[in-house]
Design a protein around this nucleic acid. Structure first.
Lengths: 128, 128
DNA sequence: CTGTATCCCATACGATACTG
DNA sequence: CAGTATCGTATGGGATACAG
């Protein structure tokens, strides 16, 4: 995770970068963040649309996760000064790159559902 | 996530597959599972080696997460009947495929640390 | 519509101790 | 060494209500 770091970096700077990496990874390596990123890959969406598109996410977790992703420069938030308010969410360039890897994870899941289902049955039998 | 499902499937079967997908995704879409999968991609490791290699993981979470990944057919667990016991963990074929996508996530994180750091500073300024 | 705030419960997690 | 069990705390996360 923290390998291949530039040799020209000060030890203190290296340490800070490692801490940042861990923090960033923690922010994106969770169910809601990954599902939101994957869904937003399909295009710009409003808050309510996202809430409906991301299976099982609550109002609260969507807002909370979107703030984190916005702060980390993964998600763009465009507010239209209208009444009622309209907010468009989309992926940044960095977010789009991340999304390709996230989507690969989703594809992997779909492709291995059956395989995993059988692995589980074998495991559960073994454990009596 | 649950698109592109075979047309030849019964409605009940489709529903079960969707539920399984969501469950599997929840199992792998968390910090420890992803870090463990990524680390195991470097090769077979023993429990204690893994515990040291995965930055910040506790004894308990490692054991717990390994069980889940083993059950889902992502991780192989090979017990040597010796004293003291020796257990080798490695990725299954399915796990290896998954690992390439997980590793891409890790690479993305490393490559965007600086970019994200700046995005955060801009965000925090804006929020006063 | 797009949030934020509060309450409250369930689970995640670390620390520690114990077993084969 | 490689776990499992227990305990206490912290965080995740749903439901609801409220505000701009």
């Amino acid at each position: 995770m923290t390998k291949q770091m530039s040799d020209s970096m000060e030890p203190a700077e290296v340490k800070r970068t490692e801490a940042l990496s861990a923090e960033i990874f923690t922010n994106i390596a969770n169910k809601w963040a990954l599902l939101i990123i994957n869904t937003l890959g399909e295009g710009t969406m409003r808050f309510t649309e996202l809430c409906a598109a991301v299976e099982g996410v609550s109002h609260k977790m969507l807002a909370q996760t979107l703030r984190i992703l916005e702060r980390d420069g993964v998600v763009n938030r465009l507010v239209h000064p209208t009444v009622p308010p309209r907010v468009d969410y989309s992926l940044t360039d960095a977010g789009l790159m991340l999304r390709t890897t996230v989507n690969a994870m989703c594809v992997w899941t779909r492709q291995h559902v059956h395989h995993i289902d059988q692995a589980r049955q074998r495991f559960d039998e073994r454990q009596v």
